[in-house]
Amino acid sequence: MHLVDLIPDSDTLLALSPEELGLAMLPSIEAWKDGAHGIELSRFLSTVFGPGAGNYPSGNRTEISDALREAWAWLEGAALIISAPGLGGIHPNRVLSRRARQLVTGGDPRGTFAVRSLPKMQLFESIREDVWHLFQRGKYDTAVFEAMKAVEIAVREAGGFGPDLVGVGLMSEAFKAGGPLADPDAERGEQVALMNLFQGAIGSFKNPHSHRKVALGPDEAAEILLLATHLLRIVAWRRMMMT
């Protein structure tokens, strides 16, 4: 499996953080290792740029190489790649750690490591770390639940509501005409539409996940997480306007 099979677009690759790119590299590192002897960085780079490796443009090869080296260093620091056993002395060969092997074998690498579907920095700050890592581990339903729970918490705190008001009812009270998060300068129809947006999102994507097992794929989960990000930005904006 070439890296270009997982991240076909070079601009997307270069936009990834070292941890995002490092996670995406794991299936390819595992595929190209030399048995128990593992693979060294220079050999891995040759699988990215060598004959038959794919079609990353040659014009930004240096940038791509630098990004891959940074990601490799992050993988080492995170103990996801470790020294290959049995070679003796200090050597550059690396193999996947137990945790990394669990990540790779736990599901379809194209799904588990679909970093191009959800760039980390696109997520709202309050959910960026925990939710993104859940997504990368393939815990899509949990990631969606946690993101929508964060929306609920943000609405409750911004509106000054107690813990007993939850879910769709909370959204109704917060965004109804005259509610603490309603925009008093908006037309009545716009106020209702915004309330319906929050009601629908929480009712569709948070409450069902708290009562039954829902199997989500990476693309659908990424779309819902970006919706949660948009909702959190709206709450932050309304909170700022209230001060």
Rank of each mutant, 00 (worst) to 15 (best):
S65C: 14
G52T: 09
D11P: 01
A53H: 06
G179Y: 06
R239G: 15
Q122M: 13
G77N: 00
F44N: 03
G111S: 11
R98F: 11
P18V: 05
G107L: 08
Q102I: 02
E19K: 14
V48N: 01
D108H: 10
Y140W: 14
Q199D: 09
Y140D: 01
P218M: 14
M240R: 15
R212H: 03
E223G: 09
R239H: 08
L14C: 06
G138S: 03
T47Q: 02
R239E: 14
Q199N: 13
I82P: 00
A182N: 06
P8Q: 00
A53Q: 04
S42N: 09
D141K: 08
H133A: 13
L197R: 07
L26T: 11
W32Q: 08
S117E: 09
T105W: 09
P218Q: 15
P119M: 08
L134W: 06
N55W: 09
A182G: 08
L165W: 02
W132D: 12
A147W: 05
D9P: 01
H37K: 01
D183P: 05
L68K: 09
M242L: 12
W237T: 13
A84D: 01
F49Y: 07
L68C: 09
Q191F: 14
V155C: 03
V166Y: 02
F205W: 12
R110A: 12
F175C: 08
A84L: 04
T12L: 10
R69A: 14
A53W: 02
L232G: 15
G107N: 03
V104F: 01
H91G: 08
S10T: 07
V4N: 04
H209A: 12
E173F: 06
E220H: 14
L103W: 10
A84F: 02
M148K: 05
A36L: 06
A114W: 01
G89T: 12
Q191I: 15
A78I: 02
D9F: 00
S83I: 00
A36W: 10
M1Y: 00
K33P: 01
P18N: 09
L165P: 00
N93I: 04
K206V: 04
G111P: 00
I234H: 07
V155R: 03
K206C: 11
G107H: 02
I234E: 13
E223D: 06
W72Y: 04
E223I: 11
I127W: 15
D130G: 10
L16H: 05
E76H: 00
G169C: 13
E146I: 04
P119Q: 07
A67Y: 13
P180V: 05
A31M: 02
E20G: 14
G203L: 01
Q191W: 15
F175N: 09
G167L: 02
A73M: 09
M25P: 04
E157L: 08
K213H: 12
E125K: 13
S17D: 14
M121G: 15
A221L: 14
W237Y: 13
Q136F: 00
A222W: 11
M1D: 04
R128E: 15
P119S: 12
R98K: 10
L21E: 08
L21Q: 07
G203D: 01
G203P: 03
E70P: 01
V151D: 12
L134V: 04
N55G: 10
I90H: 05
R233Y: 15
